[in-house]
Design a protein around this nucleic acid. Structure first.
Lengths: 218, 218
DNA sequence: ATCTCATTTTCTGTATACATAACCCTTGTG
DNA sequence: CACAAGGGTTATGTATACAGAAAATGAGAT
């Protein structure tokens, strides 16, 4: 693996998993020593992170960007626009059998959620397959790219929310509804199902974020 | 000006203005000598261009990305999604006076188009001010960023289309309709006016692109 | 004649040394 | 005591040297 790739993956992971808090200054020498690479590949990694919006050029060096409540609202506003359109396009252009299969698998998602694996690997993998299927079905690389760049931030937010079994079960049902609408080749229904799902996700994130806040300050 | 910034600006301009054709391999030593900077800042510039999608990592070095007819369709599909939403949000959240003023100025755009300046600087500046006003009105930095990253590609496409006075005059009227709808605080109308404008722009681009193609091959 | 494999060359990837600019602290003054 | 100016310090920005990998080249065999 290239050193710049290694540094990028490590830093990205540290930021997304909140091991590097917002506002942290990423000094080049400090980070290059910590990650065991020289400054050149490290700078490349920082450039990629900044392009993605995970870091921003601050006075000296780059700093880990903050995610405020307003950011979450803005992020979901854009997400609703993009994923709503994507679901509609997938319904128009996608292959019905693919999404029928995903719908069937999502019906059994509760088994994955309540299984032995505390990381819920299989569940998240299944949701990821739905995302990938939509990406492939829309046949619009620019839209797919825009959604990919959003997902980085969404993963970061997800780590704030308590992914409890109740919410995940409900989310799986919402995903199944999206898959069903796409399989039925109904663009407007697919978009509506997506809108519904995102609104509920947002509510959940904001609720847990608020209680986190209370925990820390009250 | 920093060397990496200089290299980035020069390469970006060369690509957008079609002085560097799609498929051109950008070798590091060659380009660094041409632009008078060392390889380090040049690589940073190439990284930024690749993140924007103007270049792609090809076998050896990076190559200037192609823009096919399908790409144009995909680009406008995403553009319609983003700018339609942006216009609607601007209508909801924007300041009416700002857009009334822009509407009045756009009414006089034919004067700018038929003026002495062959580059139509004042006209494009006015259209740019409308874009900026919408960007500011939506108060969603993620959506604004997504639109900015699209505009690079759109400028590149625009240089393919013949920006004749007739099309620009019609476009100005379409822009005026968008400004009017936003000023009237009518989101659905603003979105519709945007959809209409983009469809006509796309038709124009594809028509001139097709005739170009005929010119070269027939 | 063409395909394959080894050699050579050339390019990218990385490390490091140097230049430059921003920041901080000290010092002097109002 | 507050504030500004200056130098010192430390970080980033740039250049270059080196290492390694990939592609072009050429010789040899089939």
């Amino acid at each position: 693996m290239r050193a710049s790739e290694k540094a990028y993956a490590a830093l990205r992971d540290d930021i997304v998993e909140w091991r590097l808090a917002p506002g942290t200054v990423l000094a080049e020498v400090e980070q290059s020593e910590r990650l065991g690479v020289s400054r050149t590949p490290l700078r490349e990694a920082l450039g990629r992170l900044t392009a993605e919006g995970l870091t921003t050029p601050g006075g000296r060096g780059v700093v880990v960007t903050d995610i405020s409540l307003e950011d979450i609202d803005e992020l979901f506003e854009l997400r609703e626009t993009l994923e709503g359109k994507a679901a509609a396009l997938a319904a128009s252009r996608g292959d019905a059998a693919t999404f029928e299969q995903l719908q069937r698998e999502l019906a059994h998602a509760p088994d994955l959620i309540n299984g032995n694996d505390p990381t819920r690997h299989d569940y998240y993998e299944l949701v990821g397959r739905l995302d990938a299927a939509i990406d492939a079905a829309i046949s619009n690389s620019y839209l797919a790219q825009a959604m990919r760049s959003l997902r980085v931030h969404l993963v970061r937010i997800r780590r704030l929310a308590a992914d409890d079994a109740a919410r995940l079960t409900a989310a799986a049902a919402e995903h199944a509804a999206i898959a069903e609408a796409i399989a039925a080749k109904n663009p407007r229904l697919a978009e509506a199902a997506t809108t519904l799902h995102l609104h509920r996700s947002l509510s959940h994130v904001k609720a847990t974020h608020a209680s986190h806040h209370k925990e820390h300050h009250g």
